[in-house]
Simulated scan of single mutants.
Amino acid sequence: MYQEERLIAIIDYLEKHERVSAAVICELFDVSKDTARRDLVRLEEEKRIIRTRGGAILPSRHDQVGDYQQRLQTVSTEKKKIGRTAASLVYDEDKLILDASTTVQACAEYISDQSCTVITNSTHQAAILSSKPNVRIHILGGELHKEQQFLHGESVTDKLSEYFTDTAFLGVVGISEHGLTIAHEEDGMVKRRMIKQAKRRIALADHSKIGVTSFYKFADLSEMDVLITDRPPSPSFQKLLSQHGVELLVSEERTNNQ
């Protein structure tokens, strides 16, 4: 096997197993320790790995989270499918919490004009729901995060603690074995309080968020009751959800006559 082929295979191994040792490289490819070391040096020079004692790991992924307006422009078909499925779980007279994520905004768009109460830290969710006469809206007042358009701070979490609701709908940047994560701590603190104030907690995450770990953890998997996504996750992730008691709902395409 040529070195270029080995380097590709080493990266493939890392993507599946997260770390690799020089000894494993020797065993997998029947090469000497010196050859394994040269392969790791080459990958490090190309910034494709981070060397560790006796082996290597992949660099952390720092996915950029665009500002709210940018994300609004890219509300995907997947998010709309998820939003429709989430809205179908809303019943008359429900008391709901909606966070400020664009996936949850898709849910707000599909909530029918039924008698329910919504508590939110998003002026965008409130504006969407204001066109539905039978939906009562409570906006949580606090400091506005201008880039991401959510209200946060002690006044938001204190006010949230006064409400007891049926369901909270929560968006994420990542959901993995490490729990539910978000890019901004301020947002995560509000979401953490939202979880405490709802009987049922529903996470909304398109397939690109599954297996991803972002900056700030706001909940363990076991704190969620339901995950709604647009594609079936891997069998190993489905098993992880089952172990933590999380029900999986995969949204379906609607045909034109539905």
Rank of each mutant, 00 (worst) to 15 (best):
Q238R: 12
L72Q: 10
A9V: 06
R53N: 09
A198S: 14
A86G: 15
Q148G: 15
I11A: 09
G179N: 08
I128R: 05
Q197A: 12
G211E: 03
Y110S: 15
H152E: 15
L144Q: 12
D206R: 12
M1I: 13
L227H: 01
A87M: 08
S208L: 07
I57K: 02
L72A: 07
E109S: 07
F150N: 03
H17W: 00
S208Q: 09
T52N: 04
Q197D: 03
A168I: 08
T165P: 12
R192D: 02
D94Y: 05
G153Y: 04
P235S: 12
E15F: 15
A23V: 11
E252S: 01
L144T: 06
E162I: 13
L96A: 13
T255G: 10
K47S: 11
T255Y: 10
L72E: 07
E18S: 15
G54T: 04
R192F: 02
I182R: 07
L96M: 13
M1S: 11
R192M: 07
R37Y: 13
H244S: 11
E247V: 11
Q258S: 14
E45L: 10
R200K: 07
A127L: 06
A100K: 10
R201H: 03
K209F: 00
D166Y: 09
D30H: 14
I210L: 14
V135N: 06
A205N: 09
A127M: 11
E143Q: 15
T85K: 14
R192G: 05
R200T: 05
K47N: 13
D92V: 09
T85V: 10
V172W: 01
L40P: 04
P232I: 13
R231V: 15
E46D: 05
M194S: 08
E253F: 00
A9G: 00
S88G: 15
I119E: 00
R84F: 09
K146Y: 12
T102R: 02
A183P: 04
T117S: 00
K217M: 01
R84E: 06
A106C: 04
A87H: 05
S101V: 12
V90W: 10
T117C: 00
L180V: 03
Q64R: 05
K81G: 07
S236P: 03
D67V: 04
E162R: 12
K217H: 03
H62T: 03
N256Q: 07
A23E: 09
F169D: 10
A86W: 03
Y216M: 00
E252N: 01
Q70F: 01
Y13K: 13
G54Q: 02
D30M: 08
S88W: 11
Q105V: 05
L89T: 09
V41Y: 06
E253S: 13
Q105I: 14
Q114L: 08
A219K: 02
I195F: 05
V226N: 10
A9Y: 08
F218V: 10
K132T: 08
S251W: 06
D230V: 02
A9K: 14
E109K: 12
A108F: 06
R42Y: 13
F169T: 11
V20H: 02
I202V: 15
M1W: 00
N121W: 02
I228Y: 01
S115V: 04
S60Q: 05
I25L: 09
D94M: 06
K239W: 10
D94N: 08
L227G: 03
Q243P: 01
R136W: 08
